[in-house]
């Protein structure tokens, strides 16, 4: 059997000077080409979990870690973050903090330069990456002159150009307006078409439901649910227990069922929900 893209076994992690671990006995794995959405309330340990996958935790951000994290079959702890970046790309929350170069093309080229990609190859990859995120024609501008959504897409392009096989995005849309959010999720959809594996942390359940294959619900450092997104979001009772919400259509169908004693099949997509609803009303 081929190695899984990401495999996490019995992962427990605690930050220094804290009594309780921030991650408790986490187990999950995802296959190549799958997109995983991680949801959970603030402080549940979502970012820490994501940073375990590329080795930032515990190599750069110190703490006590138990258990194993494997990426493409090899142990993360046996390699450095810089080495891991060839396989795992990481996009952070704040767009502005991720930019360090004078122009957009140099920003995209920065990561590649560190990997030692030859110049001719760089040009091709820059054009490619900027096209994927819809920033073609901006090459010579300053990254600081872009809007928040564009900056975040630039950060994504900079990671894409390094051609990792796994892409992790830690709340990439929280600073963005609805249009900016859509732009980021469209990129995520493209990743899937390219066969890349992705992890996205976000509070946007609608979009998570629409774009992710699997969803992992984290609550106080524990995995509460890990299943295909449809299955997670239709378990509304459990979602509410964890102070989370399902997408609005699912919430609507669930409330309707409760109020009128009906049994409409819950769904996370608008089209399917309409169909289900109609079939009962007839």
């Amino acid at each position: 059997m081929a190695a899984k893209a990401i495999e996490v076994n019995n992962l427990t992690f605690s930050y220094p000077d804290t009594d309780e671990p921030v991650l408790k006995d986490i187990n999950f794995s995802i296959n190549h080409g799958e997109i995983l959405g991680i949801i959970g309330p603030t402080g549940a340990g979502k970012s820490t979990l994501a940073m375990c996958v590329n080795g930032l935790v515990p190599q750069v951000i110190n703490g006590e870690m138990e258990g194993t994290v494997k990426v493409n079959g090899s142990e993360v702890s046996e390699s450095s973050v810089a080495k891991m970046s060839e396989d795992v790309g990481f996009v952070f929350q704040e767009p502005e903090n991720q930019l360090s170069q004078m122009t957009i093309e140099e920003e995209v080229a920065f990561g590649m330069g560190n990997l030692g990609v030859p110049r001719d190859d760089m040009r091709v990859r820059i054009t490619d990456a900027l096209e994927q995120v819809g920033l073609t024609g901006f090459e010579k501008r300053s990254p600081l002159a872009l809007s928040g959504g564009q900056q975040q897409r630039l950060a994504i392009a900079a990671v894409l150009a390094m051609r990792p096989s796994i892409m992790i995005m830690d709340e990439p849309t929280s600073m963005l307006d609805p249009k900016g959010k859509n732009e980021v999720y469209d990129v995520l959809k493209n990743l899937k078409d390219y066969g890349m594996t992705g992890i996205i942390i976000d509070h946007e359940v609608e979009r998570i439901a629409a774009y992710c294959d699997k969803v992992l619900v984290l609550y106080e450092g524990e995995v509460q649910m890990f299943a295909p997104s449809e299955e997670v979001f239709t378990n509304i009772k459990k979602m509410h227990e964890l102070t989370l919400n399902a997408p609005q259509v699912t919430e609507f169908l669930s409330s309707y069922n409760q109020a009128f004693g009906k049994d409409v099949k819950l769904s996370t997509t608008l089209e399917e929900a309409v169909d289900n609803f109609e079939s009962v009303c007839k």
Binding site: N54, L56, V60, S80, V81, A82, K83, S85, E86, G89, F90, F92, N97, Q98, S100, F110, G111, N114, L115, A158, V159, M162
Partner: peptide, 9 residues
């Protein structure tokens, strides 16, 4: 971010 862009490689 730099670490994730292979800066110390």
């Amino acid at each position: 971010v730099l670490e994730c862009r292979a800066f110390s490689r």
